[in-house]
Design a protein around this nucleic acid. Structure first.
Length: 166
DNA sequence: CTTTCGATGATCT
DNA sequence: GATCATCGAAAGG
């Protein structure tokens, strides 16, 4: 799909799934104040601060109360590229949104998007016109449940945060 | 190309 | 007090 926030964004090329029954997930230990959005209704955003400095964007999936989400890890920039460059201080197109922290900075994601619906402004979502070729592999940067192949990417994309293992 | 390491702060134990 | 769904610069091959 294409994701825009205030008109800035592109085609999502990499995601990861997280579920409350699996220890790598923020929802694994149950609902708390900071992860409450993850236990809310689907179609809303869950935003968290990673390593003290990177804002990362998730979409809540499954029914309210379950605690499942998808981390948006990378996208191919198509709209608002000048603004992304400005926010990132970085001209190389490949490095604008290739990683959850970079994407968050380029799209100006912050806590005030936490819990917001993603089908109304400032979000704008558009479905792909054709069925894409998707690859999967282990998730990145986690220490638990490392065997779940729950990282998904657009095959052959140059905008992935990292290549997928063979 | 690869690996290492510091920045930085919320959250949970 | 430890951990962490990360990034970028620096150092080494």
């Amino acid at each position: 799909m294409t994701l825009l926030i205030d008109g800035v964004g592109g085609v999502i090329v990499e995601t990861e799934a997280y579920d409350s029954e699996e220890p790598a997930s923020h929802s694994y230990r149950g609902q708390t104040l900071h992860n409450a959005a993850l236990f809310g209704p689907p179609g809303h955003a869950y935003v968290y601060l990673s390593y003290g400095l990177h804002w990362c964007l998730n979409f809540v999936c499954r029914e309210a109360g379950h605690g499942a989400g998808v981390l948006i890890r990378a996208l191919e920039p198509t709209a608002g590229i000048a603004q992304m460059i400005d926010r990132r201080g970085q001209r190389e197109p490949r490095l604008l949104c290739s990683g959850p922290g970079r994407l968050g900075q380029a799209l100006a994601v912050t806590r005030d998007l936490n819990g917001r619906r993603i089908d109304v402004p400032p979000f704008k979502m558009a479905a792909a016109t054709a069925a894409p070729d998707i690859v999967c592999g282990p998730r990145i940067g986690i220490s638990k449940a490392v065997d779940h192949p729950w990282r998904f990417g657009l095959a052959g994309s140059r905008f992935l945060s990292r290549p997928f293992p063979k």
